[in-house]
Design a protein around this nucleic acid. Structure first.
Length: 498
RNA sequence: GGGCGCGUAGCUCAGCUGGUAGAGCAGCGGACUCUUAAUCCGCCGGUCCCCGGUUCGAGCCCGGGCGCGCUCACCA
């Protein structure tokens, strides 16, 4: 018997036998109170066999059978709950021959409870010396192979529950991500920010340059878009006088998948009135460093063998000076497309096709993302982006072709993006029109015009700073993960037929 | 989307120059009251990803497809 069908039949048959012997396979009630396995383990890390013997503490635990070492008239069973395992020792003499026969029908994967005194075995293992036990839930399918565990990458993601169940690292990642998000909420609450939930289905998408997912509302016969950012709604709330506001939620972008990209991803967006992008720098570095400190207990993380120091202050570097350093091209002198093309050619920059790049800004962006970004390992704020690439950011007072914007990079990856928010409705309209022009010329990621948002802006918006941070990428930095899907609970995989 | 690689038992893997499929774990039967990858004896288990081709003969070679990984491109 070893085909999948036969293994499943064997488990079904054993379940039937159990049921015939009067055991409910899926009982509704669990005996209470239950002791927590992690708490028992932590509480008795130093308890000796003698002290346990002396106190004879009676405990009751419940969990999934993940290991079964069976002898003729006794068995050791590993029970797992809350991600940790505690051994129970089942002896025929102690539980009665009849009940031991029933127990022999239990198998790896099933859920059970067991009660008895806590002891330490001769080998020193903390163990429940079972006096009473019972069945809690049947598992009809086997767990992954116990020694190698689940290693097939595809199956790890297609059946993530098995990955989480059997790979402690995956569980630790989930716990860490959860604590990171809750720490971010705590810090923002400490600073009096209000958390809101804005629409995911939007009549006009915006706040970023990306292609959206499109859907249809049947009743209103209305085309709706899954949001690509929360930005324009949160700014409406700034206009509404919610001076410190944030949202943690999901964005959707109909684009490629890579180590750093997924079509749906979690974002934090924060907006603060009477502030600008320098305030956002302080907030960003504090959020990242404080989250690391509270979750990991340190502000130092390792990435590809390099130690990263997340503690503030992070260096503030202008995009121009970083490009100058990396490529020897001075974008402040080469201010036109032709001049920049010439500078790139004379500097002999590799893998940039200067002639086919349509605008000065896009060429600058190319230089930056290919030659600077991958090298930004230690946390770094990159400041002062071309206005053309940032239709929602306020212009520099003295350099109107640049905007007050920064992106924060860690480990060669963009972690956050922020600006002094554009609050001049006429300039905003002009920027939208530029975007409409780009769209007309075929730029599928151009920002659409949002008349409703412009109307709101005309009512008046205070000077404000805004910042967006990728939760998944932050988690990658905190865990050292090399791929975004590692820090997602259920990453997207192609649909499989059959 | 392009390039490279992979797909063999439920799981983890091996399979020579093309000669008719193998191990460990899991499963089944048996022994066993201090194991923790328990041990020992025996047994069962295959659409070699799919379709087509070459060949006396294909897991292996060729063509097409599907899925996955890496990578480049795209993309915050």
């Amino acid at each position: 018997m070893a085909t999948e069908k036969e293994i499943l039949e064997a488990r079904r048959n054993r379940a039937q036998e159990l049921e015939k012997s009067g055991t409910a396979l899926f009982p509704a009630r669990v005996p209470r109170p239950l002791d927590s396995i992690p708490q028992l383990i932590a509480g008795h890390a130093d308890s000796s066999a003698e002290s346990l013997e002396a106190s004879r503490q009676l405990v009751r635990i419940a969990g999934r059978i993940v290991g079964l070492r069976s002898f003729g008239k006794a068995s050791f069973v590993s029970l797992q709950a809350d991600g940790q395992q505690l051994q129970v020792w089942m002896k025929r003499d102690q539980v009665s021959a009849e009940r031991y026969t029933e127990f022999k029908l239990y198998e790896v994967g099933d859920f059970v409870w067991a009660a008895g005194p806590l002891i330490r075995t001769q080998k020193g293992e903390l163990t429940v010396d079972v006096q009473e036990f019972g069945f809690l839930a049947k598992s009809y399918r086997p767990l992954p192979e116990k020694w190698h565990g689940l290693v097939d990458v595809e199956q790890r993601y297609r059946q993530r529950y098995l990955d989480i169940l059997t790979n402690p690292d995956t569980r630790r990642m989930l716990e860490l991500r959860s604590r990171a998000v809750s720490t971010i909420r705590t810090i923002l609450e400490e600073r009096s920010f209000l958390e809101v939930e804005t629409p995911i289905l939007q009549p006009v998408y915006g706040g970023a340059n990306a292609r959206p997912f499109t859907t249809l509302h049947n009743t209103y016969e209305e085309t709706l878009f899954l949001r690509i950012s929360f930005e324009l709604y949160l700014k409406r709330l700034i206009i509404a006088g919610i001076d410190r506001v944030y949202e943690i939620g999901r964005d959707f972008r109909n684009e490629g998948i890579s180590k750093k990209h997924n079509p749906e991803f979690s974002m934090l967006e924060v907006y603060q009135a009477y502030a600008d992008y320098t305030d956002m720098m302080e907030l960003t570095e504090t959020l990242v460093a404080e989250t690391a400190r509270r979750v990991l207990g340190t502000t130092q993380v390792e990435r590809d063998g390099e130690m990263l120091e997340l503690a503030p202050p992070w260096p503030r570097r202008s995009m121009a000076e970083l490009i100058q350093e990396a490529c020897g091209v001075n974008i402040r002198e080469a201010r036109t497309l032709e001049a920049l093309r010439g500078a790139i050619k004379s500097a002999k920059i590799s893998n940039i096709d200067a002639d086919s790049t349509p605008t000065w800004s896009v060429l600058v962006d190319e230089l930056f993302s290919k030659h600077v970004e991958p090298k930004l390992m230690q946390p770094t704020f990159v400041l002062d982006y071309p206005a053309e690439l940032s239709p929602l950011a306020k212009r520099h007072a003295d350099q109107p072709d640049l905007v007050e914007r920064f992106e924060a990079f860690i480990g060669g990856m963009e972690i956050a993006n922020a600006f002094s928010e554009l609050n001049d409705p006429d300039d905003q309209r002009a920027r939208f029109l530029e975007q409409a022009q780009a769209a007309a010329e075929g730029d599928e990621e151009a920002h659409p015009i949002d008349e409703d948002f412009l109307r709101a802006l005309e009512h008046g918006m205070p000077p404000s700073g805004g910042m967006g941070m990728g939760i998944g990428r932050l988690t990658m930095i905190l865990t050292g993960a090399s791929h975004l899907r590692e820090v997602k609970v259920f990453p997207h995989l192609r649909k499989r037929d059959g």
